[in-house]
Amino acid sequence: MNKTVLISITLLALSGASAFAQSAATPQEKMACRGDAQSLCAEHIGKPSEMNACLAANKARLSEPCRKVVEAHGG
Protein backbone atom coordinates (compact mmCIF):
# COMPACT_ATOMS: atom_id res chain seq x y z
CA MET A 1 0.00 0.00 0.00
CA ASN A 2 1.22 3.51 -0.63
CA LYS A 3 1.91 5.98 2.14
CA THR A 4 -1.15 8.16 1.48
CA VAL A 5 -3.43 5.17 1.81
CA LEU A 6 -1.75 4.03 5.02
CA ILE A 7 -1.73 7.51 6.50
CA SER A 8 -5.34 8.29 5.84
CA ILE A 9 -8.12 5.89 5.91
CA THR A 10 -6.91 2.82 4.42
CA LEU A 11 -5.53 4.26 6.91
CA LEU A 12 -9.15 3.77 7.67
CA ALA A 13 -10.85 0.52 6.78
CA LEU A 14 -12.30 -0.18 10.15
CA SER A 15 -13.41 -2.17 13.07
CA GLY A 16 -16.81 -1.59 14.66
CA ALA A 17 -15.77 1.32 16.88
CA SER A 18 -13.64 3.03 14.30
CA ALA A 19 -14.30 6.30 12.58
CA PHE A 20 -15.06 4.95 9.15
CA ALA A 21 -17.21 1.95 9.96
CA GLN A 22 -20.00 3.00 7.62
CA SER A 23 -18.06 3.11 4.33
CA ALA A 24 -14.66 3.44 2.76
CA ALA A 25 -13.19 6.92 2.55
CA THR A 26 -12.75 8.68 -0.75
CA PRO A 27 -9.32 9.91 -1.85
CA GLN A 28 -10.39 13.44 -0.90
CA GLU A 29 -11.41 12.31 2.57
CA LYS A 30 -8.11 10.52 3.01
CA MET A 31 -6.22 13.66 2.07
CA ALA A 32 -8.30 15.69 4.56
CA CYS A 33 -7.02 13.47 7.37
CA ARG A 34 -3.47 12.86 6.22
CA GLY A 35 -1.82 15.52 8.38
CA ASP A 36 -3.85 14.61 11.44
CA ALA A 37 -3.03 10.94 10.99
CA GLN A 38 0.68 11.72 10.78
CA SER A 39 0.77 14.11 13.72
CA LEU A 40 -1.66 12.44 16.12
CA CYS A 41 -1.64 8.76 15.24
CA ALA A 42 1.65 8.00 13.48
CA GLU A 43 2.24 4.87 15.56
CA HIS A 44 -0.88 3.35 13.97
CA ILE A 45 0.16 3.79 10.33
CA GLY A 46 -0.35 0.48 8.57
CA LYS A 47 -2.95 -0.63 11.13
CA PRO A 48 -6.27 0.65 9.75
CA SER A 49 -8.53 -0.30 12.65
CA GLU A 50 -6.12 1.22 15.18
CA MET A 51 -5.73 4.35 13.04
CA ASN A 52 -9.47 4.79 12.86
CA ALA A 53 -9.87 4.37 16.58
CA CYS A 54 -7.05 6.85 17.19
CA LEU A 55 -8.59 9.48 14.92
CA ALA A 56 -11.98 9.03 16.56
CA ALA A 57 -10.42 9.25 20.04
CA ASN A 58 -8.67 12.47 19.05
CA LYS A 59 -11.68 14.02 17.32
CA ALA A 60 -11.50 17.21 19.40
CA ARG A 61 -7.90 17.75 18.22
CA LEU A 62 -8.50 17.06 14.52
CA SER A 63 -8.47 19.73 11.86
CA GLU A 64 -11.95 20.81 10.85
CA PRO A 65 -11.85 19.00 7.47
CA CYS A 66 -10.74 15.73 9.06
CA ARG A 67 -13.24 16.06 11.92
CA LYS A 68 -16.02 16.39 9.34
CA VAL A 69 -14.81 13.24 7.60
CA VAL A 70 -14.66 11.29 10.87
CA GLU A 71 -18.15 12.48 11.84
CA ALA A 72 -19.54 11.67 8.40
CA HIS A 73 -18.35 8.10 8.86
CA GLY A 74 -19.85 7.67 12.31
CA GLY A 75 -16.89 8.64 14.48
Rank of each mutant, 00 (worst) to 15 (best):
Q28W: 11
L12W: 04
L11T: 06
M31N: 08
A72T: 04
T10L: 11
K47W: 07
M51R: 03
K3T: 12
S15D: 06
V69T: 14
N52E: 15
E43P: 06
L62C: 03
E29Q: 15
A37L: 08
G46F: 03
L14W: 02
E71A: 13
A56I: 02
M31P: 00
G46D: 03
I7T: 12
F20L: 05
A72C: 05
M1I: 08
E64M: 10
A24G: 15
N58F: 07
T26P: 02
P65T: 07
G75M: 01
V70R: 00
I9H: 04
S49N: 13
M31I: 11
A17C: 10
C33A: 07
L11Q: 07
I7V: 14
A19Y: 00
Q22P: 02
K30C: 06
T4V: 14
C41Q: 00
S39E: 13
G16R: 07
A72V: 03
A42L: 11
K30L: 09
A25T: 08
A19C: 15
P27M: 14
D36F: 01
M51A: 14
G35P: 05
S8K: 11
Q38G: 08
N52W: 01
H44Q: 15
E64K: 10
G74K: 00
A17Q: 08
V5L: 14
S8V: 10
M51K: 03
I7R: 05
L11P: 04
L40K: 04
S18P: 02
L40Q: 04
L40E: 03
A53P: 02
Q28C: 07
D36G: 06
L62G: 02
R61C: 02
Q28G: 14
E50C: 07
L55N: 01
S49T: 12
K68R: 14
A57N: 14
A32C: 12
N2H: 09
